[in-house]
Amino acid sequence: MDGTRTSLDIEEYSDTEVQKNQVLTLEEWQDKWVNGKTAFHQEQGHQLLKKHLDTFLKGKSGLRVFFPLCGKAVEMKWFADRGHSVVGVEISELGIQEFFTEQNLSYSEEPITEIPGTKVFKSSSGNISLYCCSIFDLPRTNIGKFDMIWDRGALVAINPGDRKCYADTMFSLLGKKFQYLLCVLSYDPTKHPGPPFYVPHAEIERLFGKICNIRCLEKVDAFEERHKSWGIDCLFEKLYLLTEK
């Protein structure tokens, strides 16, 4: 054995408090879109979701699917093309516009009456609605409950000090017999300040354990050449399924 860690023996890093005071403002996230600093976007979609999607959907149609901090995630069109209703929230209007443009979807925009100064973008087909606002303002819009949440790049982007508020927001959107698919990253948080932030299993239990059954479905090596600039040499991604207790 050469000592290389595999996707099945990932350790939890003990120094989980080192990132707790890290803060990125909404304006800084918007600047990332304006300046093209969106390496977190996956042009081909998320491979773990693609692998498990049909198993999760079980042939159902007409589900309501929520994408927190959606950006221009191509997976939104995957669900819409399968007959589901997609709702996303994203602070960057540019990111939302790029989604519709890159997916060749016509759309309209209208003000969100409950949140002055914000807009919702709706596909002409009517099954994709993307709200351009802070996720913490979203419950004011009465958008209803969801059958499924796809959380990739959301919890790991939320400032650590806001995670409890974020989890409570997610709980307010969950319908009966929900499936909450959650991706988190595992790396040494003493070497990279984030975002994306390190979210250990214990944190998921703390945030969601009282209401959800929590199961880790898969762990994969997600390290890429660009991650060397973070000062790390190891990065794993974990896919969790959260269901109603």
Results as ranks from 00 to 15, higher is better:
Lys72His: 06
Lys191Met: 07
Asn21Ala: 14
Ser14Leu: 10
Gln97Arg: 11
Ile149Ala: 05
Ser61Lys: 05
Thr25Lys: 04
Lys51Arg: 14
Thr55Ser: 12
Ala73Thr: 07
Thr55Glu: 04
Gly59Pro: 11
Cys216Pro: 15
Glu90Pro: 03
Arg226Ala: 14
Leu173Trp: 08
Cys234Thr: 11
Pro195Arg: 03
Glu27His: 15
Cys165Glu: 12
Phe67Glu: 00
Glu203Asp: 14
Leu130Ile: 08
Arg206Lys: 15
Ile232Ser: 06
Gly83Phe: 04
Leu130Phe: 08
Asn142Val: 09
Ile158Trp: 03
Glu237Cys: 05
Lys245Gly: 09
Leu173Gly: 01
Glu203Asn: 08
Ala222Gly: 11
Glu237Phe: 15
Thr55Asp: 10
Leu207Ser: 02
Arg206Asp: 04
Ser125Lys: 09
Thr38Gly: 05
Glu205Leu: 14
Cys165Ser: 13
Gly71Val: 04
Glu98Lys: 05
Asp147Gly: 02
Ala80Trp: 01
Ile204Pro: 01
Phe146Ser: 00
Ala80Arg: 02
Ile91Ala: 02
Val65Arg: 00
Gly161Phe: 08
Phe66Leu: 08
Lys191Tyr: 10
Thr4His: 15
Val156Leu: 05
His84Gln: 02
Ala202Arg: 15
Asp221Tyr: 06
Glu28Val: 11
Gln30Ser: 10
Arg163Gln: 07
Glu205Pro: 03
Ile91Trp: 11
Val23Met: 12
Gly88Glu: 00
Arg226Glu: 15
Lys219Glu: 15
Asn127Phe: 06
Asp147Pro: 00
Cys70Pro: 08
Leu173Met: 13
Leu185Thr: 10
Pro196Glu: 01
Trp150Arg: 00
Phe40Ala: 04
Asn127Ala: 06
Lys50Val: 07
Ala202Phe: 15
Arg163Pro: 00
Ser229Ala: 15
Arg215Ile: 15
Gln103Lys: 06
Arg82Gln: 14
Arg82Gly: 07
Gly209Arg: 08
Pro160Gly: 03
Ser129His: 15
Ser134Glu: 03
Asp54Arg: 03
His192Gly: 03
Val86Thr: 03
Leu8Met: 15
Leu138Ser: 03
Leu182Arg: 00
Phe146Leu: 04
Lys20Val: 11
Leu24Pro: 06
Asp15Met: 13
Lys122Asp: 00
Trp230Lys: 07
Glu224Gly: 10
Pro116Glu: 08
Val65Trp: 04
Glu203Ile: 14
Ile232Arg: 05
Phe66Ile: 08
Leu26Ser: 04
Leu217Lys: 13
Pro189Gly: 07
Phe67Val: 08
Leu53Pro: 02
Tyr198Leu: 15
Lys119Pro: 01
Ala154Arg: 01
His46Cys: 02
Ile211Arg: 11
Glu27Leu: 11
Asp9Glu: 09
Ser134Thr: 08
Tyr13Met: 14
Cys70Ala: 03
Phe56Leu: 11
Gln47Arg: 10
Tyr180Gln: 01
Lys50Ser: 10
Trp33Leu: 06
Thr113Gln: 10
Met170Asp: 01
Ser108Arg: 12
Asp2Thr: 11
Ser134Lys: 10
Pro116Asn: 07
Asp54Gly: 09
Tyr180Asn: 01
Thr25Pro: 05
Phe56Arg: 10
Gly71Ser: 05
Asn127Arg: 12
Ala80Tyr: 04
Ser14Lys: 13
Cys183Met: 13
Glu109Trp: 13
Leu69Cys: 11
Tyr198Arg: 08
Glu43Tyr: 07
Gly59Met: 14
Val87Trp: 04
Ile112Pro: 02
Glu224Phe: 12
Phe79Cys: 03
Asp31Cys: 15
Ile232Asp: 03
Leu217Thr: 04
Pro111Val: 13
Leu63Ile: 09
Lys210Gln: 09
Lys60Gly: 07
Ile128Asp: 00
Asp31Leu: 06
Lys32Phe: 13
Pro139Val: 10
Tyr13Ala: 11
Pro193Tyr: 15
Asp162Met: 11
Ile91Asn: 02
Phe236Leu: 05
Tyr198Phe: 15
Thr169Phe: 07
Met76Asp: 00
Gly59Ile: 06
Gly3Ala: 10
Gln103Arg: 06
Lys119Asn: 03
Phe121Gly: 00
Trp29Lys: 02
Val34Trp: 06
Asp81Ser: 11
Leu181Trp: 04
Leu235Arg: 02
Lys238Thr: 07
Phe66Pro: 00
Ile143Arg: 02
Lys176Trp: 07
His46Trp: 12
Lys51Gly: 06
Gly209Leu: 06
Ala154Ile: 00
Gly194Pro: 07
Ser134Ala: 06
Ile211Met: 15
Arg163Asp: 00
Val156Lys: 02
Leu57Tyr: 07
Tyr187Asp: 05
Gly3Asp: 12
Glu224Lys: 11
Glu110Ser: 15
Gln42Asp: 12
Gly62Glu: 11
Leu217Gln: 08
Ala157Arg: 08
Phe236Pro: 06
Glu102Arg: 05
Ile211Leu: 08
Phe236Thr: 06
Thr16Ala: 12
Leu217Ala: 06
Pro111Thr: 10
Phe136Asp: 06
Gln47Phe: 10
Ile10Gly: 09
Lys32Ile: 05
Glu90Leu: 04
Glu27Val: 08
Thr6Gly: 08
Glu110Met: 13
His227Lys: 13
Gly126Glu: 07
Lys122Ile: 10
Ile149Trp: 00
Glu110Trp: 09
Pro193Ala: 15
Asn35Arg: 05
Asp233Ser: 14
Val87Ser: 10
Leu8Gln: 03
Cys234Asp: 15
Arg64Glu: 02
Val156Gly: 07
Pro193Glu: 03
Asn127Cys: 10
Asp9Val: 12
Val34Cys: 05
Met1Pro: 15
Tyr131Cys: 04
Lys32Met: 10
Gly83Met: 03
Lys37Glu: 14
His201Trp: 12
Trp33Tyr: 03
Pro195Val: 06
Lys238Asp: 13
Lys245Asp: 06
Ser61Ala: 14
Ala202Thr: 12
Phe66Ser: 01
Ala39Arg: 09
Ile158Cys: 08
Leu217Asp: 01
Leu24Gly: 05
Met170Thr: 08
Lys72Pro: 03
Leu182Gln: 00
His46Val: 07
Pro68His: 01
Ile149Leu: 10
Gln42Lys: 14
Gln179Arg: 14
Gly36His: 15
Val199Glu: 01
Glu114Gly: 12
Lys245Ala: 10
Glu93Arg: 11
Thr169His: 14
Ser85Arg: 07
Gln42Ala: 09
Ser129Asn: 10
Glu11Asp: 15
Lys238Glu: 15
Lys119Cys: 07
Pro116Lys: 06
Asp188Pro: 06
Ser108Met: 09
Ser229Asp: 15
Asp147Glu: 05
Ile211Ala: 15
Val23Asn: 15
Asn213Trp: 03
Leu181Ile: 13
Asp54Ile: 03
Ser186Cys: 11
Ile149Glu: 00
Asp2Lys: 13
Leu24Ile: 15
Gly62Ser: 10
Asp9Ala: 13
Gly153Ser: 06
Pro116Ala: 06
Lys77Ser: 07
Lys119Arg: 07
Lys176Met: 08
Arg5Thr: 12
Asp15Val: 11
Cys212Phe: 03
Asp54Thr: 15
Leu239Lys: 02
Asn104Leu: 06
Trp78Arg: 03
Phe121Asp: 05
Lys20Met: 14
Ser92Leu: 02
Phe236Ser: 14
Thr55Leu: 11
Lys210Ser: 14
Pro116Leu: 11
Leu239Phe: 15
